[in-house]
Simulated scan of single mutants.
Amino acid sequence: MNTAVKSALNTSKQLSQQSISSLNASYMNNIQLFTNYNFREYFKRKYQREFEKLNKEFATNDSNAINHYEQLTEELRLIKRQTIINQLYKFDELIVEQK
């Protein structure tokens, strides 16, 4: 478990809204690193839904919130690896991306 996760979860396994917000910000920062528009938009939508679900679980003191949080921290590591792989390949810019 990395230091960010350790600092987010204290010894009594309690989540805080700040730790959830911090994890969400980490996701959005890493998702922006995708060079492909389709991947970027897909992961934005996917993890917005995941964080809405986590926030709902946290608000209702659901016991699954901690497990869901830990699952999302593992998936963040996956996203980081995927962005590195994605940056190795050149994709043509789509029409929707043109500024």
Rank of each mutant, 00 (worst) to 15 (best):
M1A: 08
T3K: 11
V5R: 00
V5P: 00
V5G: 03
V5Q: 02
K6A: 02
K6N: 02
A8F: 00
L9G: 00
N10G: 01
N10S: 01
T11G: 11
S12Q: 10
K13T: 09
K13R: 12
K13C: 09
Q14N: 02
L15V: 03
S16R: 01
Q17E: 05
Q18S: 12
S22N: 07
S22W: 09
L23A: 06
N24F: 12
N24G: 13
A25Y: 11
Y27G: 05
Y27D: 12
M28S: 15
M28W: 11
I31F: 03
Q32T: 07
L33N: 13
F34Q: 08
F34I: 03
T35D: 11
T35Q: 05
F39A: 07
F39T: 06
E41I: 15
E41A: 14
F43Y: 08
K44H: 10
K44V: 10
K44I: 13
R45D: 14
R45T: 12
R45C: 13
R45P: 13
K46G: 00
Y47C: 02
Y47T: 07
Y47A: 08
Q48H: 14
R49H: 13
R49A: 13
R49F: 14
R49W: 11
R49G: 15
F51R: 12
F51E: 10
F51K: 12
E52R: 15
E52Q: 15
L54P: 11
N55D: 14
N55M: 13
K56D: 14
E57K: 08
F58Y: 06
F58A: 01
T60P: 08
D62L: 04
D62G: 02
D62P: 00
S63G: 03
N64P: 00
A65G: 02
N67R: 11
H68N: 00
H68G: 09
H68I: 01
Y69M: 07
Q71S: 13
Q71H: 01
Q71D: 11
L72G: 04
L72S: 00
L72E: 06
T73P: 03
E74S: 12
L76E: 05
L76T: 07
L76N: 07
L76V: 08
L76K: 09
R77A: 13
R77Y: 10
L78V: 15
K80P: 03
K80V: 10
K80F: 09
K80T: 04
R81V: 12
R81Q: 07
R81A: 05
Q82Y: 07
T83E: 02
T83Y: 02
T83N: 01
Q87C: 05
Y89W: 10
Y89G: 05
K90V: 11
F91L: 15
F91S: 14
F91E: 08
F91P: 09
D92C: 14
I95V: 05
V96R: 06
V96P: 07
E97H: 02
